[in-house]
Simulated assay, not measured.
Amino acid sequence: MAQKKIAVVVGSLRKDSLNRKLALAIAHLAPPDFTFEHVRIDDLPLYDQDQDGNQAPAVKRLKTEIAAADGVLFVTPEYNRAIPGVLKNAIDNASRPYGQSAWAGKPAGVVGISIGQIGTAVAQQQLRAVLAYLDMPTLGQPEVFLQNKEGLFDDKGHVAEGSKQFLQGWVDKYVAWVNDHSK
């Protein structure tokens, strides 16, 4: 089976981000023919349409990394019932100029974790609407709206046994999704 490269976009810049931990835990559950490479979004300029003809090196790098991927995993926190600005900025930068989106056609998965009881449900729904516009086939079920609780991650960063089976089910569906939809 051919190696599949997944670009991981974590919508949090926080050093000890729960969503970064979740992204790493997901990578541990994936089969060996899937590699997960985190793309950097903290150095992107604020999107400015005036710069479409002369994109910053960081934007060009992001677009190249997304273009080289077989799929994209979005791991998003929820800030004030929405996706974080840094994530929206990355999406906007890599989708422009019009007609040159790095996202188009890339199979996507969306997950997230929060301390709130509904996890990142609202942010994920908002993100799914954006991804639909960007022509990214996005895995619909199962959905992963995790609430962080003590003991969810073990000392090695893996998901503890109580949640491992649920998350493994999502990973298995995402792997099949990417295999069915990647070029």
Rank of each mutant, 00 (worst) to 15 (best):
F36L: 09
A2W: 06
A102L: 11
L127T: 06
P97E: 13
D180T: 11
S101C: 08
P32N: 03
N54K: 09
D42K: 09
K106R: 10
F34K: 05
G140I: 14
P142K: 01
N148Q: 07
S12P: 02
Y98C: 11
T138L: 09
P84C: 10
R40T: 13
V159M: 04
Q55G: 09
A94I: 11
F74M: 13
K164Q: 02
L134C: 13
S101D: 12
D155E: 10
N179V: 15
L46C: 11
L87C: 07
L44E: 05
V86Q: 09
K173W: 07
N148C: 08
A69N: 12
Q49W: 06
I113Q: 03
A94S: 11
V178K: 03
V144N: 03
Q126R: 06
Q100I: 10
S17D: 01
V75Y: 00
V110W: 00
K106E: 06
Q3Y: 02
I91V: 15
L29Y: 00
N179Q: 12
G162L: 11
G71L: 02
W170S: 01
G169T: 01
L152A: 03
G109T: 13
L46D: 04
I41E: 04
Y79N: 06
N19C: 00
D135I: 15
K88V: 12
Q126W: 07
A27W: 00
Q124F: 02
Q55W: 02
P77M: 12
A68R: 14
T35R: 05
S182G: 01
I41G: 09
L167R: 03
N19H: 02
G53M: 08
L167M: 11
W170T: 05
A25G: 04
V171P: 04
A67N: 09
T76P: 02
D135T: 15
L24C: 04
K15I: 05
L127A: 07
T76S: 10
Q126S: 13
